[in-house]
Design a protein around this nucleic acid. Structure first.
Lengths: 337, 337
DNA sequence: ACTGGCACTCCATACTTCCGAGTGCCAAGT
DNA sequence: ACTTGGCACTCGGAAGTATGGAGTGCCAGT
C-alpha cells in the first residue's frame, strides 16, 4: 500500500511542517531532503498519501500538512524517541535534586518539563490509592475537634478536621492513635477499608462513637482524594502556539481538574510514553492539541502520570524524549526520599 | 481646575469606553448621557481633559479613551463601589461554605472570584508569619528520619522531613514533641525564634544534637515559607481581553510566584480595597493591566490578600465590589473553621 | 516508473479608493 | 464668559482591485 518512499515522504512532510509551520510543497521537499527523485514523482506520492488521509491541503494550490492520522503513523512507525542531550540531563538532575518535599518535587517537575519542551506541562500527584500508609496522626485542635493527618509512603500529607460527637480526652486520642497506627501501618490504601472495619470492636464503648467518626472521615478522605490532584505550568507557552480552536478553549480545559485527569489518560502499566493526537483526545476544546504522557513511580509501581500538552504540530520525538527522561528522574527522586 | 461638568464628562467617557471598548466621541457622549449641552461644548471640555492628561486619542480624528491617570481619578473620586446583588451574595455563600480544608477554601475562593469578575483571580494563602502555632507534631518515618508537621491556627499544615544526626528512640521523639508543644503552643510565629532559643538547655545531653537539628529545620521552615504561596485562576478569561502587550507577557508574569506576590501589594492594614492601575504596577509585562486587591483575615487581623487582575479597561466599581465581598466572606469562613 | 513541461488555481500582499466619525477652530448667539 | 452651530480637515478602517508566486494536476515523452 505505502512503499518505503511514500513513508519517507510522509516523514519529511511531518518534519518540515513541524519546523517551519508552513504547508510543505513538493519542490521544497526534494530541496531539503535528498530523496533521489523529482518533484513530479513526489507529487504523485503525495496524491496517494492524501487519498489515504495521511495529509491534506489547507486550500487548493497550497502545500500539504499532516492530518492527525498522518501524525499517528509518524509517531508509530516513522520516528524514534530522541534522547536528551548531556546538558539537558544534567539540568534535570540539578533542578530536581534540590526539592525538599512532595509539593516541591511536583512543582519543580512541572516547571522543568514546561521549560524543557516549551509547552504546557501537566503532572499528577502520586495517587493515594496506590500508596500505602506510613503514619496516621490525630491531633486535638479544639474542644470537639480533632485533626486527622495522613502521611503516605510517597511523602504526601493529607489533613482533615473531624468534628467529634463527644468530648475527647487527651489519652483517648492517644489510644486511638496508637490503635490506628498498629493496625494500618504500611498498609496499601486499597486494603485500608477492610482492615478498618474490624477496629471499632477493639475500643471501649464510650470511645466508640468518636472512633466511628474518625474512621468514617478517614475512609471518606481516601475516596475523595481518589479524584487526584493535578497541576500544570507553562501556560505562557500557549501564546506562542497557534490553534485552530481558540486559545480560550484550551485554557478553559486546563483549569478543569477533571479534564486534566482524563487528559493524562488511564495509566498504562509501565513507564512507556503514550501519545494522544488531536481528535483522539476525548475532550472538546483539546481537539487541536496533542498530549504526550508517561507514568512515573518507584520501581515497578506506577504512582501517577505526567505529560505535556501542545499543538498537534509538535516535535514528537523530542517531546517524548523529554517526558520519558523527566518521568524516570522523578521516579528516582521519589524512591530516594 | 476641573469643574463638575468636566468630571461628569470624564466619568461618562470611562463608563462608555469600558462597556463598548471603543474610543468615545463627543456626539456619542451627549446622546447616551443626558448632559444638557451640545457636542461642541463637550469637545472643549475634552480638549482640556486631554491637555491635563486624563484622556487621550489613539489617533487624530478618533474618539478619546481614558489614560491611566484618568482611570485613577475615576476610581478615586468619580465612582462608588458597587455592592453585589442578592443572587451573587448567595452564590458566594453556597460556593464557599462547602469547603472542608484550607486548600479547599483557597481553591474555591480563587475560582469563585475568577468566575464572578470574569477576570484572573489571585489569592494568597494565609501568611505564616502572622499566624500562630496550634500544634507541632513529630513523626518518625524511617531510621534517621523524622517528619515535622506544623499546624497553624488558620488550618495550614506544613511538613518537612528532617535527617536526624543520631538514632532516635520512640520515647525521645515523644519527649521532644511534648517539649515543643508546651513551649510553642499558641505562640505567634514571630515569637517562635525567641522561645526556641532556650529549648536546647531543657533536653538531656544525648538528645541535644537531634533537638538542634529539629529546631533549625523548624526555624528554616518559618523563614522559607515566609515567601508565601499564591494561586491564581481564570487564565481563560485573559483570552477575551485585549492587551497592548502580548498575552504571553501576562501569562508569564502570572506563573512567577514572586510577581504574583508583589502584584497583590503589601498588605494595607484593614480590608479596604486597593487598586493599582496600569503603569502604577511595578512589573514590566503587567503595565497594561490593573489589579484590584483587598486584605482578608479574621477579625482585625489581616492574614493575607486576594485580588483580581484585568485590563486597565475594567469595570472598577463592580470588580471592587466583588473583591470586597469575597474577602469578607473568606474571613468569615476562616473564622468559623 | 519517473520526469519535464504547461496551464491553472488561489492565497497573500500590496495598493488604491472611499466613507464617515470625529476633530479643531471660529464667528455668532445668549 | 460660556455655549453653540457650522465648516473644513484628518485619518483609520473597510472594501475593492491588481499582481505575483508557490503549488497543483495532468500529460506526453523517456
Amino acid at each position: 500500500m505505502l512503499d518505503d518512499r511514500k513513508l519517507a515522504v510522509l516523514r519529511a512532510i511531518v518534519e518540515d511542517y513541524v519546523s517551519t509551520n508552513e504547508p510543505v510543497g513538493s519542490k521544497a521537499l526534494v530541496d531539503r531532503h535528498n530523496l533521489g527523485v523529482s518533484p513530479a514523482t513526489i507529487r504523485n506520492d503525495m496524491a496517494v498519501l492524501e487519498e489515504q488521509g495521511y495529509i491534506a491541503q489547507p486550500h487548493t494550490s497550497a502545500g500539504r500538512i499532516p492530518t492527525d492520522k498522518g501524525y499517528r503513523l509518524f509517531v508509530d512507525r516513522l520516528s524514534t524517541i530522541k534522547p536528551l542531550s548531556k546538558a539537558e540531563r544534567r539540568a534535570i538532575e540539578t533542578f530536581l535534586s534540590g526539592a525538599y518535599d512532595l509539593d516541591d518535587v511536583v512543582g519543580r517537575t512541572v516547571r522543568l518539563l514546561a521549560q524543557l519542551t516549551r509547552q504546557v506541562a501537566v503532572v499528577q500527584y502520586p495517587s493515594l490509592t496506590r500508596s500505602s500508609v506510613r503514619h496516621v496522626e490525630l491531633v486535638p485542635v479544639a474542644t470537639g475537634r480533632v485533626l486527622l493527618v495522613l502521611i503516605t509512603n510517597t511523602g504526601r500529607v493529607e489533613q482533615r478536621v473531624i468534628e467529634t460527637p463527644a468530648e475527647l480526652s487527651e489519652e483517648s486520642v492517644g489510644h486511638l492513635r496508637a490503635l490506628l497506627n498498629t493496625c494500618l501501618d504500611g498498609l496499601a490504601f486499597g486494603d485500608v477499608p477492610g482492615a478498618v472495619s474490624e477496629l471499632p470492636e477493639q475500643v471501649s464503648a464510650e470511645e466508640r462513637p468518636v472512633a466511628a467518626a474518625v474512621l468514617s472521615v478517614l475512609l471518606e478522605t481516601l475516596v475523595e482524594k481518589h479524584e487526584e490532584k493535578v497541576v500544570f505550568a507553562g501556560a505562557a507557552n500557549l501564546a506562542a502556539m497557534d490553534f485552530s480552536r481558540s486559545l480560550r478553549d484550551v485554557l478553559e480545559a486546563l483549569e478543569e481538574q477533571v479534564v486534566l485527569m482524563r487528559l493524562l489518560g488511564e495509566s498504562a502499566d509501565s513507564s512507556t510514553v503514550t501519545v494522544r493526537i488531536g481528535t483522539e483526545n476525548p475532550d472538546e476544546g483539546l481537539r487541536s492539541t496533542s498530549v504526550v504522557a508517561a507514568g512515573y513511580g518507584v520501581g515497578d509501581l506506577t504512582l501517577a502520570r505526567l505529560g505535556v500538552l501542545g499543538p498537534t504540530r509538535m516535535d514528537y520525538p523530542g517531546t517524548m524524549g523529554a517526558v520519558r527522561a523527566v518521568a524516570r528522574y522523578v521516579g528516582q527522586i521519589l524512591a530516594g526520599s
